[in-house]
Structure formats: C-alpha cells, structure tokens
Design a protein around this nucleic acid. Structure first.
Length: 849
RNA sequence: GCGAAAGUGGCGGAAUUGGCAGACGCGCUGGACUUAGGAUCCAGUGGCCCACAGCCGUGCGGGUUCGAGUCCCGCCUUUCGCACCA
C-alpha cells in the first residue's frame, strides 16, 4: 500500500496545470461567467501562511464555481508602485524596479506552490508602462471633465516620508504608513473631485446587499452625509453676513453666540479693531501650527473677536468668537452655537461664561433653568418639543426642522443644504516610484496636458536614490525639461506622481483587456465581465481602496467606458491569522525572536526576565511568522489549504497552531488510504450497492457542503467531509468495493480544498480527464430513503413511545401513526392535538391541550 | 461618547425555521504496533459521581413556551470601527 506523499505529487500536478494552462480563459467564450478576484497585492516579498488564507480562499471558490460549469476568471496582478520599494532602494541600494520585480517572482512561485490557479496570461503590474499609460490616459479624461484639478489647499504632510497624504491615510493624526505625526501645510496639489460623487457613492451603498454591513457602515460614516440648512447671520461690522451650516435649524432661537474657525477668511476683518489684536493673531498662528492631533488634545479654546452678529430670528446681538474646535474644512467654517442643545457648544459656553438659552424640552416637562443643566439636551425625536421659539414653539423637533427650514428659504437668508464629510481626494505624491502625472507647465501657455499620443510619460529608470533631498524625479533634468506641446517653447514637466490608490482603482477592469495597447478596455467585454462577482481582500481596505474604486468606476461610467457603476458585486473580508509569540516586558522591542527564547522550569525566559506569552498578527517584526516552505515540504500544500480553511470561519481571526496542522494532514492521509482500499477492491466482481447509511451520509454531505460553500462556512464544509470519510472508513471492512461511488464523490467535494491530492487519486485509479471539468455532484434524495424510519414520540415534552412511519416521514403520515399507536394514543386521548414537530430522523413532538 | 459585532468544554469551533448542546478537529488519558516515537492506528474525553442511575451545565438576572445556546426585557464583559464633522 502506498503512503500519502504530498511531496511527490504536488510538484507534478503544479507543473501539469501550468503546462496545460488550465486557468487561462477566453473572455469571449460563451457561458455563464464568474469573475473571482483577490485584491492584487503589494509585492513586498515573502508570503507567510497568514497571507495564504486570502489567496487559498479565493482559489477554493474559483475551483468550486469552475466545477459548477461557470466560465470562470481568476486573474492576478501587482500593485507594484509605492513607498517601500523606494525606501528599500535608499536603504540597500537596489533600484525599486529590481526590488519589486524580484519580489513578484518570489510571490508567483509561492502561489504556484500553494496550488493556486491564476490566469497568468492576463497578469499586470502597475509599475509597467503598458499599465500606467492607461492611468495617465484616464487622468487626462478626468482633467478634461474637471474631475482632476490642481489647487492650493491645506494638506496633510508627513515629515518622515516627505510627502503629502490623503485624508484617508491619516490615522489619529499620524501617518498611516510610518506613524509620524502629520502636520498641516499649504501646498499646490492635484486632486480628484470625489466630492462631486458623494451623493451617488452614498446612495449606491444601499444597493450593495452582498457587502458586509460593517464595510457599508464605515463608508457611509466616511462620506458623512448630513442634511441641514445654511443660514446667514448679519454682521454689522463686516458689511456682509456670516454663513453657518447647521443640522439643527430648529434650535436657532437658542443660538446665543457664534464661533468661527481661526482660518476663516473673515477673521482679519473681524479682529481688525480689537484692542488686543496682536495677542489674538499670535493665538491664531499657534492654532494653525498645531498638528491635527495636538489641536484635538489641547481641548476647546477660544478668543472673543469683539464683534457681534444678529440672530435673524430673535433679533438679538450675539458675540462672535474664534474657536479651535471649529474646522474650516467642514461646512462653512463658522457655526451658530446653541449651548443648551449641543454638547460642544455647552462646554464652550460654560468655559467662557457665555449665555445659555433653553429652546427644547422633553414633551410635558417642567421648564428648565439654563443654570441647572448638567449637559446639553440633544434629543431630536418626536418626544422633544420646541419652546420659546416664536413660530415653531410647541412643535416636536422633526416638524420644527421642516418648518424653520422653509421659513429660512422664504426669507431668503439661507437654504436647505446637504453637506458631506468627504473631501476631495489628494492624489499628488512627491515621490519617485509612482505613475508620473502627465502635465506640463509652460511659462507662456500655463498648464498643458500631455497629448494622448505622447503617452506613456515614462518614469526614468536611471535615477540616484540618496534619500535626502525629496523627490528624485525633480532633479532629473532630462525628464523635467520638455518642449511645450502647445507652443513648442521651453517647459517643465510635473514631477509629482500619483497616489498608488489610483493604480488600484481600475485594474479589475483592465484584466479583461490586459494587453490591449490601443484602448483602456474593450467595452463589450468589460460590460460582460463586470461587476466582479466575488471580491476578496482585507478589511483594511474598507474605506480607501473600495471607496476610490467605486468613485473611479462611476467616473468611467460617465465617460462612457463602462456600463456598470458598482465594480464589486459581492465583497468578502477575510480576517488575519495570528500566532502566539513572546514579549519581553523589560525591553523596548515588544516581541522576542523565537530562537532567543530559553526555557527554565517550563517557562520562557530571556536574560533574567520571564517572557509573557502573547498572540498577535503574524509579521516579520514580531518574529512570529510561519514560512510556508517548511510546512509544504513536510505536509504538503494541500494540508496547509485544508487547515487554513478548517481553522475558523474565514471572517474571524484565527490563531495558527502547529499541532492543528497535523489534524488536516491526518485527514488527507486517511482519505488517501480509503482510496487505496476502496478503489483496489472495486475491481472484484463482488461489488454491490453501498450500505444505506453510507448513501444517506453521502447525500447529506453533498447537501451540506454545497450550502456551506454558498455561506462561506468552509470550516464546517471541511468537517462535513471529515464526517463522510469517517463513515466510509467504518464500512470499509466487508463493503470496500461498494464504496467506490461515494468515495469518488467525496474526492470531488474535497477537490477545491486539496486539489493536488484529489487529482492524483483520480488519475491513479483510472478515471479519465481532469476533475476540474466535471460538475459538482447533485444529490438524489431517493437514494437516502429507508422504507420506514423509527421515531420517538414526545407528548408535551415527555417521552411517550416509538412509532414506525414511512420514509420520508410526511406530517400527515406521522399524525396517522400517532393516532394508530395505542401506547402513544393513550397519552393523546381526549385532548386536542395542536401540532406535531418532526425532528429529522429522530423524534416527533406531539403538542396537545 | 456614537456605531457594529460577539460571549458555548483545556483550545479552535458545531448546532436550517425554537426540537437529543458540544458535530469536526486539536490537546489530553489509556492501549496497539515499534530499537525508538514529536509517525501511524484503536478506544475514551463538558462538570459532579468509584461506576450505573441521577443531577448540573451555552456571560449574569428575569420572561415567553410542552421545549430556549437560539425569541423578548434588563444588566455585565470583550473586540472592532468612527470620533470636536456643527
């Protein structure tokens, strides 16, 4: 009997799949299409088993749908531009391109060893001019439409990476990548006008039923749609009114002061006559220089401008203050403050002794004195009622909002407004390793787009990396200096490159026309293949990538390039794999490399310190990665695949266990041995029909596995296959030959999980052709039928007897049997039978009264 | 503070619509085969109890129901997002 030897079979099958190009699909082939896509990775180098989860999951799904007979596409590419390549160049003197291409090769090899089938004929890399020329082309189209523009704006500047960041890349006031504190800088930069699509991006979320609710909520939150009104407050000293945005116009009678952002353009005029103007200007400068983080941490601070506005509804003069908590980037940069009904305004009013006026109360409550308020009363449902507010007094809040908004519009002092938290997408990066922005600055003609025929604007390769003086592109005179395409005079190229999220915003469509050098994509084909049917990637892209891609899809739709507006029909976010490790509580470096852990009395030590066991995300910096190479060498890729899916539901974090792997290996070994026994016996003439119990289990398993595939419950799908193999194993003695059919069905269902092992068995035992072309087995319920089943009867929850009924036990048949059975009947006699509940194969509950 | 999700053995985790709680696997215990076992195979494994019987068990407290891990009400805990957005 031959042993299960993954090392002998996997290499052979991988080679064969590659030679036969089994995953290459003709995108024009007829049939029902299935587009499976893993988010294309940044080629950072070696992959560990934690990364494997993502790709194995995609491959399992791809193989499943392929077996279902769908024309399936599973492409792969590389998000190959970005900072780490440049940093590696600075640190180790390797060109970013070389570093990137080397990593790509290593990762491709890893995918091959995992047995993942990608259609490599459609491979693309964002750092390849054949790819980024279309990014540049798209940029020019957006520019023509006014969706790409250059503007001066306060931007997030990372002093460590020496580049600007998009708002989405600033986490808690720090650079997403390096963690340095982000500062504000006023710079000329390129933007994409994503705000123009805010409403469509927001509304589209409602249709994404097959996206995780969490991601939709995060995007909704980020877009931050809020409905309210703009209202003008006259300011005698200015000669023009100040405009505020509020979501609570119903509280306007309670507006007792105004606060404007220190950056507001009217501030100089407001403080012009202030006796202490110098001090205020100094304070403003201080606030402006603060990082976003410092500004938040310094608490609420303000200064009185010395000027007043008129509350248009009460007619009262209200003081105008400056406040560090009012943001110039949101709304109008000025707010009306209603301390009684907004917590921030309340705190500010208490801090500076500003007046508070109560205009909303719980319905039927006694009037409240402002002095007794412990916090702002912010309820806005029907139970909150307006008081002391002229024409809206007595109305519940929702109605009051409607009434007062109409009144504002009627008087011509404002409008109903929808505002978004979302701001335009800053795409310029002062970095080398990215897509050059195809623009030229001419002294005579101004800003001139690179003509389409001159694309791509190629990134010069021969560039020195010192890491000291900013963007190395800017010092490449051969690149920068150019003739103006318009007048032919001397001009200079834009040296900013694009944010890499631009690269990843259309790649999924480009796969369909990956090597077309005449157009960005073939509309007929992308319209057939989009949207992506199943998109898989990490939750870390919930906002950035997925929002940008949705935006660009809509922009491309409006340019007539695509029929679809939503690029990804179904989204799944797999969670990461963690691994236990050790932490040294006395050292700066939290995690300790495993080979530095010594053991004393069964406890982990390092030096004189006892280490603390800890579980965390697998990463090189934590020294807790598991390299797939050793694992595959010992147990095979199929073992890793099965274990990875069995370990936990894929959306849940899972802790890697070296012992757990063995369970998957044993399972595959058992299946292998079953094959040895069953398929050898099948040649004997004594083969007869399999035992009923085996047939039933087989069909139950087909049903269970199919259902679980649809619900992404791969861990229980694998366990169902384990159960089936256990049942087969029990019946091998005496029935080996008869188990052939069920065994082959088991192999088929196992195939997406352990493709090498199952193909080998298939071939070994004489079945012709690739299992990949066969269809998933369909359960035939008639095979499951026993003639009768015995069921246990409970009457009102108490065991009262057993009855025999025909299989499958229909409700009526059960009732009839209950009536006929004397023992049971005696418990039911004279009572009204309310209902019976059949528990499959087991028992019946008869509910009586 | 706001929003979302989740609490089940020593561990990862099962349990269609309320219907035998703990499937499957790891670990552990015992055995077989072995020069050896960190290989393989077999048996056992929620707790109390020598064992049968029995009792107790799904974060806590109530409720609905013949029957609740599942439904309802009120707590507690954890994780993850967002966070001066007017």
């Amino acid at each position: 009997m031959t042993q299960y030897r993954p090392d002998e079979i996997e290499e052979r099958w991988q080679k064969r799949w590659a030679e036969a190009k089994v995953a290459e699909v003709d995108v024009a082939a007829p049939g029902s299409k299935f587009y499976m896509l893993n988010m294309f990775p940044y080629p950072s180098g070696d992959l560990h088993v934690g990364h494997g989860r993502n790709y194995i999951l995609g491959d399992v799904l791809y193989r499943f749908f392929r077996m279902q007979g769908r024309v399936s596409l599973n492409p792969m590419g590389w998000d190959a531009f970005g900072l780490p390549a440049e940093n590696a160049a600075i640190k180790r003197g390797i060109h970013p391109r070389e570093w990137t291409l080397g990593n790509i090769n290593r990762m491709k090899e890893q995918f091959r060893r995992w047995g993942i089938l990608y259609d490599w004929s459609k491979e693309l890399a964002s750092c390849d001019p054949d790819y980024y020329r279309w990014n540049q082309w798209l940029f020019l189209r957006l520019y023509e439409r006014g969706l790409a523009y250059r503007g001066k704006a306060p931007v997030n500047w990372c002093p460590q990476d020496r580049t600007v960041l998009a708002n989405e890349q600033v986490i808690d006031g720090r650079c997403e990548r390096c963690g340095a504190e982000v500062i504000q800088k006023e710079l000329e930069q390129w933007f994409f006008r994503i705000t123009e699509y805010a409403d469509r991006l927001d509304a589209g979320l409602d249709e994404l039923h097959e996206w995780p609710e969490k991601v939709r909520a995060m995007q909704r939150n980020w877009i931050g749609r809020s409905v309210g009104a703009d209202v003008e407050f006259p300011v005698p000293a200015l000669g023009h009114p100040l405009r505020v945005f509020t979501t609570r116009p119903d509280t306007i009678f309670g507006a007792t002061f105004m606060v404007v952002a220190p950056e507001h353009p009217d501030v100089p005029a407001l403080i012009a006559g202030h006796p202490d103007r110098g001090a205020i200007e100094q304070w403003i400068a201080g606030v402006r220089n603060q990082s976003a983080l410092e500004r938040q941490e310094s608490g609420k601070e303000g200064r009185f401008t010395g000027q007043s506005a008129i509350n248009p509804f009460t007619g009262n003069e209200i003081p105008i203050w400056l406040g560090n908590f009012v943001l110039m980037q949101y709304g109008t940069g000025a707010i009306m403050s209603v301390p009684a009904h907004d917590q921030r305004d309340f705190e500010f009013a208490r801090q500076y002794g500003l007046p508070i006026r109560v205009v909303i109360q719980p319905a039927g409550a006694e009037p409240v004195s402002p002095d007794d308020l412990a916090e702002a009363f912010t309820s806005k449902d029907e139970s909150a009622v307006i008081v002391d507010s002229g024409l809206i007094s007595g109305l519940p809040v929702p109605e009051a909002i409607e009434r007062i908004s109409e009144e504002v519009e009627r008087r011509g002092i404002g409008t109903k407004t929808v505002r978004y938290r979302l701001r335009d997408w800053l795409i310029s990066r002062q970095r080398y390793w990215g897509t050059p922005i195809p623009m030229i600055y001419c002294q005579r003609c101004g800003m001139v787009p690179v003509p389409e025929g001159d694309l791509p604007v190629e990134l010069p390769i021969d560039v020195p990396f010192t890491g000291r003086e900013g963007n190395p592109l800017a010092k490449q005179e051969a690149f920068v200096s150019v003739d103006c395409p318009s007048c032919g005079g001397a001009a200079r190229r834009e040296t900013d490159t694009m944010d890499t999220f631009v690269d990843s915003s259309c790649y999924y469509a480009r796969f369909i026309s990956a090597h077309d050098d005449t157009k960005i994509f073939e509309k007929k084909l992308v319209d057939r293949w989009l949207p992506v049917d199943q998109y898989i990637g990490g939750i870390e892209h919930a906002i950035l990538h997925l929002l940008y891609a949705r935006f660009i899809a809509r922009a491309m739709h409006d340019l007539g390039l695509l029929a679809h507006e939503e690029p990804f029909r179904r989204l799944f976010n797999q969670a990461m794999i963690t691994k236990e490790g050790y932490r040294d509580p006395s050292a700066n470096m939290a995690w300790v490399p495993l080979d530095e852990v010594e053991w004393r009395d069964g406890k982990p030590w390092r030096g004189a310190t006892e280490l603390i066991p800890e579980v965390g995300k697998m990463s090189k910096s934590r020294f807790n990665t598991v390299a797939p190479d050793d694992l595959i060498e010992r147990y095979g890729a199929d073992t890793q695949r099965v274990y990875t899916l069995f370990i936990a539901p894929p959306e849940k974090e899972a802790a890697w266990s070296d012992e757990g792997v063995i369970g998957a290996y044993r399972f595959l070994g058992r299946v292998w041995h079953l094959g040895q026994q069953i398929l050898a016996a099948a040649e004997h003439p004594s083969a007869r029909e399999a035992p009923r119990a085996v047939l039933r289990k087989t069909h139950q398993t087909i049903d269970a596995v199919t259902r679980r595939f649809e619900r992404f419950e791969f861990n229980t799908a694998v366990s169902a296959l384990m159960e089936l193999s256990n049942v087969l194993g029990e019946h091998v003695p005496g029935h080996a030959a008869a188990l052939r059919g069920p065994y082959l069905i088991l192999l088929q269902m196992l195939h997406p999980f352990a493709p090498h092992m199952t193909e080998q068995s298939w071939q070994l035992f004489g079945e012709e052709g690739f299992i990949l072309t066969s269809k998933w087995p369909v359960a035939d319920p008639s095979l499951m039928e026993e003639e009768t089943v015995t069921i246990v009867v409970q009457v009102n929850g108490k065991l009262r007897g057993q009855i025999e009924v025909p299989n499958p036990p229909a409700e009526e048949a059960v009732m009839a049997a209950v009536q006929k059975n004397e023992r049971v009947q005696s418990w039911v006699a004279g009572k009204q039978v309310l209902k019976t509940i059949y528990v499959p194969g087991k028992l019946v509950n008869v509910v009586v009264r």
